[in-house]
Nucleic acid binder design. Structure first.
Length: 350
DNA sequence: AACGCGGGGGC
DNA sequence: GCCCCAGCGTT
């Protein structure tokens, strides 16, 4: 039995029931694929249901505001996915006349859709013979066929592309793609896979050469940089001053507070003075300084402190992107986890 | 070709 | 702590 047949057989016994496997609707498949980029199935599931419910069609998604989409994406991370998803929905309406593109090359034109996602949608929805290469596939192929070059190197990637095409099941690319990803997720796991009960143990390069724990090999590691943030939390009676982040990389489009940012620690007294003088408002009172909160991103280690400042008379000379929001208005905006956690502590959220 | 971009979970 | 997760856009 060849590679693909073995994996498809395994898949028949072990596949999970996932909602996006019950449909051929390219829109829903696209939704699921964007949500699942760099995201575990368990984490993405609730978001998939939310998006299908709130945006039943690509037109509904296109007609929504970006704020609305970001709000629904809140907590899932990699927010460019949400911005691009919304943008691409408008592409479908305008460039494709409201009909979801039906082949690899056209699907690839959608913002936020790369090689992997285009292959996934075109195979799952339209049975196009395009091989997917995601983290699971890279692991399975590199172990079984023995790709010892780094998978994040030019050479390693080229080998994976070649192998994925060679071994793609041409008669049923959709099932093949689903199967190999599921196999990577459940059987050929990153850490301590159960090789004794693996249908591909015979013929596996990594197992034969005791390299299961060493493959796939990566040569680059992401560097985590420190980041210190002192937040000014201006509160006036039932309103809180929020600021939409623009062109700052992290959390673009989401709402947080006016702040001071530094790569080096910010001395508390210094931050308090500076935040209070940030605005030329009268009658402000620093009422509370939070503990330092550590928030870990993939590439940042953020240490944040919140300075709660009561403002007696609500100033209207606020800066671009800033808004005074009531609790119910705030509930409609997308905010980062770090901010959500703080707002919950001071009883300003849910 | 390299880097920035979230949040959560397993070990 | 470290690694990984149905990757992509930008430079």
């Amino acid at each position: 039995m060849n590679f693909s047949t073995s994996i498809i057989r395994w898949y028949g016994f072990h596949k999970r029931d996932l909602p996006w496997r019950e449909t051929r609707d390219p829109y829903r498949i696209w939704l699921s694929e964007i949500i699942l980029q760099q995201t575990r199935v368990d984490q993405g599931m609730a978001y998939y249901h939310k998006f299908v419910k709130n945006y039943p069609s690509v037109e509904d998604l296109a007609n929504a505001s970006q704020d609305e989409v970001l709000k629904d994406w809140q907590g899932l991370g990699y927010y460019s996915r949400a911005r691009n998803l919304h943008y691409a929905a408008n592409q479908v309406m305008q460039e494709f006349g409201g009909e979801f593109p039906n082949n690899f090359n056209e699907i690839l034109k959608l913002k936020g859709v790369g090689e992997y996602t285009a292959a996934a949608i075109s195979s799952f929805a339209f049975d196009e013979a395009q091989a997917v290469i995601d983290g699971n596939v890279m692991r399975v192929l590199s172990r079984f066929f023995g790709v010892t070059d780094a998978i994040d190197s030019k050479e390693g990637k080229a080998q994976l592309v070649k192998l994925s095409k060679e071994h793609l099941n041409q008669k049923d690319p959709a099932t093949h793609n689903q199967a190999i990803m599921e196999f990577g997720a459940l059987q050929c796991t990153p850490v301590s896979p159960d090789c004794t009960n693996c249908p591909l143990a015979k013929g596996c390069f990594a197992l034969a050469n005791e390299m299961v724990a060493d493959l796939p090999w990566k040569e680059k590691k992401t560097v985590v940089k420190p980041m210190h943030i002192a937040y000014a939390v201006f509160i006036n009676e039932d309103s809180i001053l929020m600021k939409q982040r623009k062109g700052e990389g992290i959390w673009e489009g989401l709402f947080d507070f006016p702040s001071i940012v530094s790569e080096t620690p910010i001395e508390t007294e210094h931050a308090a003075r500076q935040l209070l003088q940030m605005r030329d408002w009268k009658d402000t009172l620093l009422s509370e300084v939070s503990e330092e909160v550590t928030h870990i991103l993939s590439h940042r280690k953020i240490k944040a402190r919140f300075f709660r400042i009561n403002v007696l008379h609500k100033p209207h000379n606020i800066q671009n992107g800033e808004k005074w929001l009531t609790k119910s208005e705030l509930a409609e905006k997308g905010i980062p986890r770090l901010i959500e956690n703080y707002l919950k502590e001071i009883d300003w959220y849910e």
